[in-house]
Design a protein around this nucleic acid. Sequence first.
DNA 1: ACATAAAATGAACATTGTTCAAGATATAAA
DNA 2: TTTATATCTTGAACAATGTTCATTTTATGT
Lengths: 202, 202
Amino acid sequence: MASRSEKKDSLKKRLIEAATSRIVSGGLEGLRARDITNDAGCALGALYTAFPDLEALIVEINGQTLRDIDQSMQLALENVSDIAGQMQVLAATYLAYARTHEKRWRALFELKVIDSKPVPDWYMADQALLLMRIVGPLRHLQPEFSEEQLMIRARTLFAAVHGIVTISLDRRFVGIKAETLDAELQRFIGLLLDGLKFEGAK
Amino acid sequence: MASRSEKKDSLKKRLIEAATSRIVSGGLEGLRARDITNDAGCALGALYTAFPDLEALIVEINGQTLRDIDQSMQLALENVSDIAGQMQVLAATYLAYARTHEKRWRALFELKVIDSKPVPDWYMADQALLLMRIVGPLRHLQPEFSEEQLMIRARTLFAAVHGIVTISLDRRFVGIKAETLDAELQRFIGLLLDGLKFEGAK
DNA sequence: ACATAAAATGAACATTGTTCAAGATATAAA
DNA sequence: TTTATATCTTGAACAATGTTCATTTTATGT
């Protein structure tokens, strides 16, 4: 019981749990090192024995969020066989996730990226995983595309949906009703699908 | 010379200038009240006689940025008569602005919006101005849309382009080459225009 | 049981935005 | 012009924060 590495793992886990809980309830904004260590039942300095700094802890949590989103996507895609429907479901699921886990989702993008410390490789890999969910259906819609072209287009489509979701949940922008947003996002995807169909027919 | 209100105006102007300069060179991240007041040649506390707090000063600057973007749009639209071309130009101009004035553009979205203090009305109005630039050409593409529908769709299209630009300039995401991005954004707009054409034909 | 290496501790530090009592200054009346 | 008053300006002090590090505690191997 309680070997050195076990204790360190347990500390890490408790810190991640405490920080996640704080982010979910109060957002990244209100996250304080002292609150986290209090909740985790350890000293302030202990955080810096488990992680290089507070940011590293947040990156860890953001990685979990990415995987969580991917899981939601996977789940939502089950039992949707038609390609267009899959694209619609992906967009709707992203919006639903952002809405349901707003603070946590927001933390993904609120965390400042500083040039000096590069984003970890595993983080970028988790991201690529998400994009692959879009590449799947997209491959059927653009069969002539290379894998690289598919990745770029998937990135573009994700970015577009992400922008719509972001601006809609951002109080800095003129808001629209929730139902209006749902319908508008679906129409927007419909527009893109029509565009793809049109291009295919040319 | 130097009446009370004149001095206050001059102080405001110097603070805005100093802060803008700091944002342009070091980003919102590195903005410090002490640096601004040093540059402006006033005491630290003077900032709080000219603005309620640092945030209010930043909001002022962000407002100027919005108007600056709108001006770029207006300029870019001159001599572009065809509707599709106008949409392409608007998207390209937004990307170009974000690239050329990255730190300043970024400040628009990095500033935290807190529930307690609502965004000023004039800020929302500046935003609406920008959206109207999109409504113009869009009205010709969707003549059956009501004004409200047009505003919603314009917001959606702006958000989509904004998302693409944002993710492309965000080092947190997998990057693509600059030329690739330019071409991809234009293709994306093309896709949307095709979608609109297709819908119109139905 | 003991020695040693590792980890946990929390007081202290540096850096912030913000406040406010004290001093400086513009304005208007005499 | 002089003077009284209202206003503005000042910067030291404050509170909140992430991070460090000498000291104490704890686990490991002999």
